[in-house]
Design a binder for these strands. Sequence first.
DNA 1: TCCCGTGGAGTGAACGTTCATTCCTTAGTC
DNA 2: GACTAAGGAATGAACGTTCACTCCACGGGA
Lengths: 198, 198
Amino acid sequence: MSIEETDKCRAVANAALELIAEQGFHGTPISQIAKHAGVGVGSIFRYFADKDELIHAIHARLEEKLHLALTAEIGGDLANRELFIQLVQALVRHLVGNPLVFKFLEQYLNSPYGIEKMREKFLEDADACLCSDREKPFFNLLSAGRGKTIKDLPVAMIHSLAFGPVIFLVRDILAGFVELNDDLLLQFGESGWDSIKI
Amino acid sequence: MSIEETDKCRAVANAALELIAEQGFHGTPISQIAKHAGVGVGSIFRYFADKDELIHAIHARLEEKLHLALTAEIGGDLANRELFIQLVQALVRHLVGNPLVFKFLEQYLNSPYGIEKMREKFLEDADACLCSDREKPFFNLLSAGRGKTIKDLPVAMIHSLAFGPVIFLVRDILAGFVELNDDLLLQFGESGWDSIKI
DNA sequence: TCCCGTGGAGTGAACGTTCATTCCTTAGTC
DNA sequence: GACTAAGGAATGAACGTTCACTCCACGGGA
């Protein structure tokens, strides 16, 4: 069942997102999700075949929202300094502004759930996606510039250089280890570009 | 009990490392670890108070080995292009050469186990360590160069720029998405430096 | 030399708990 | 009354942990 179909469905998904982001997949029993959503345990299994399906549905929704949030702000060729920096800024802002999303996705991508998803995606289209759906559109745009404005390295390496720092930075911001401001974020974006530009 | 005290103890730790790296903490029951180690279930609880203690002990051992592997190769001021590049190369090589170590540590640091460890460390010495023990010595060396050869950004940000790409790259290499050679690794190290150098 | 007593390492069946999932009951709507 | 949605107690599987037991190495007495 689609995650958006009913109010209860959304309530379950939101409750699950909140709890899982804080406690992890194995730390949040269905019963707790049900209570937090104000719903009976049995109802959850009316909306989702099992816990896995619930988790995958949440992931799909978050990926979609993230995608929309970024494509709304960014358009054009990322093999271009200013657009790349805008992308990095938008990505950091979105993730910092939605900590639950970040925490959930981080867990998802570091779990058997995400690993499998990632591998499926990789097999079906080796050039299009590496670590997650998250960067797919940007990934293509980045690889387009290889050898022109961007170093002629394997796409996965460009990807690591571009997005590795972003994930680490967001993690540290949410942990309270860094305080971000506009100027710092700009410098961070520029630094990322420095690592991949020719 | 120390992880090195007896052969059986080591056998348990090695079995646990192998299984947990592949299946995750929650995917590997004690019973399976016992079988894989050729040991009775009860014996494990003779060596380690509980499952958590076993996991922490493995983590401690891996951190120590990693630390030794890197300090053996690297000495001097990392706020210096060549040494920084050497560090990145050594780190990637060690992690790629010991996939189980990488997979275990990645899981550990993304779990409540590691998060707590990380926070403890941070509270006890806010400047010394951020994401894990892994980079502590290098972290200090990196922060020493801030404003001289390295950009004057918060230490955590330098940290993200320096190590974020490394972790992402190793993950992609182990997943089979990139094939590494000496030249590529060198270019990768140089790219990392480009992002943090003034 | 042999035998028996002792201590402690090693074991795994059994226990209690937790959890995902089921399924029967109830409430609501037409 | 018939039908569907919702609820939550019941269920059974899986897990971490315990504990009563086995086994072996060793030492001292005969």
